[in-house]
Amino acid sequence: MSLTAFIFARGGSKGLPGKNVKPLAGKPLIGWAIEQALGVEQIGRVVVSTDDAEIAETARACGAEVPFLRPDSLASDTASEWDAWRHALETLRDAEGVLPAPFISVPATSPLRLSEDIAACLARYDQGDADMVVAVTAAHRNPWFNMVSARGDGTIAPVNNPEGTVVRRQDAPAVFDMTTFAYVADPHHVLRSRGVFSGRVRAVEVPVERSIDIDTPFDFEIAEFLMNRRLEAK
């Protein structure tokens, strides 16, 4: 069965205006996500959910479909991406008579991911014991060791280890950063729930060097440097 992947890209980014269509290493940022999703054997098409005409035009030029535009109410700074997920699923179900399954979201903001990373998330989901699979990477900071919060008296202490009983990183419980590589989920879970961790969530660990999530101009510069280095090495 040919699967459908979704990319959710609104036009009103404030951290980096126009980031979804901004050229990164010679290709629009959203183009990398489209290429990576279509590079997965099981994925036959990519549907982009956007409120923005320029994003829609760019996405189509890069090989994606834009069969609907996202309502403005789901494209504001305060709008929930989860609601955009539900809207996309319901819209395609109503138009095509079938619910895309599994639900696959491939965010545009992780251009350094590989198609094999998306495929790994799909393979983990196919094991059948998860409502959702996400990708994670080992965290640089650990709340048991070197992440701190302020106390009422102005001093600081580790977030989860205020008495300092964990004194070596090796003794701290392992923690991970969530990435924006891919989300693979049971579509019924998306439609009936209100957030990622409202069901059984499993994880695929991915390399930190591919895990940058672009939100600022600085993130973009780092990602472009790393992408150019990758392309030059080919």
Rank of each mutant, 00 (worst) to 15 (best):
1 M>W: 06
7 I>H: 06
9 A>I: 08
10 R>A: 13
12 G>P: 01
12 G>A: 14
17 P>D: 03
20 N>P: 00
21 V>R: 05
24 L>E: 03
25 A>W: 04
26 G>Y: 12
28 P>V: 01
37 A>C: 05
41 E>F: 03
45 R>P: 10
53 A>C: 00
59 A>F: 05
60 R>Q: 15
64 A>F: 03
66 V>S: 04
66 V>F: 04
69 L>Y: 13
69 L>H: 13
72 D>F: 00
73 S>A: 15
74 L>T: 07
76 S>D: 04
78 T>D: 14
81 E>S: 09
84 A>V: 13
85 W>E: 10
86 R>P: 04
86 R>G: 12
86 R>T: 07
89 L>S: 07
90 E>N: 09
90 E>H: 04
95 A>K: 13
96 E>G: 07
98 V>E: 14
99 L>I: 02
100 P>Y: 03
105 S>I: 06
105 S>A: 14
106 V>N: 11
106 V>Y: 09
109 T>Y: 01
111 P>Y: 01
113 R>C: 01
123 A>H: 06
123 A>T: 10
125 Y>V: 00
129 D>L: 02
131 D>Y: 02
131 D>S: 10
135 A>T: 06
136 V>I: 14
138 A>I: 11
140 H>P: 00
144 W>N: 07
147 M>N: 12
150 A>F: 08
152 G>C: 06
155 T>L: 09
164 G>Q: 06
164 G>W: 04
166 V>S: 09
167 V>N: 10
169 R>I: 11
169 R>E: 13
170 Q>R: 15
173 P>W: 07
173 P>F: 01
179 T>I: 02
186 D>G: 09
189 H>R: 09
191 L>D: 10
191 L>G: 09
194 R>W: 08
194 R>N: 14
194 R>C: 09
195 G>Y: 05
196 V>N: 12
197 F>D: 10
199 G>N: 05
203 A>N: 10
205 E>R: 13
208 V>M: 11
211 S>I: 01
212 I>P: 03
212 I>D: 12
213 D>G: 12
215 D>L: 14
220 F>L: 08
222 I>A: 11
223 A>I: 06
224 E>K: 03
225 F>L: 15
226 L>V: 01
228 N>W: 06
232 E>T: 09
234 K>S: 12
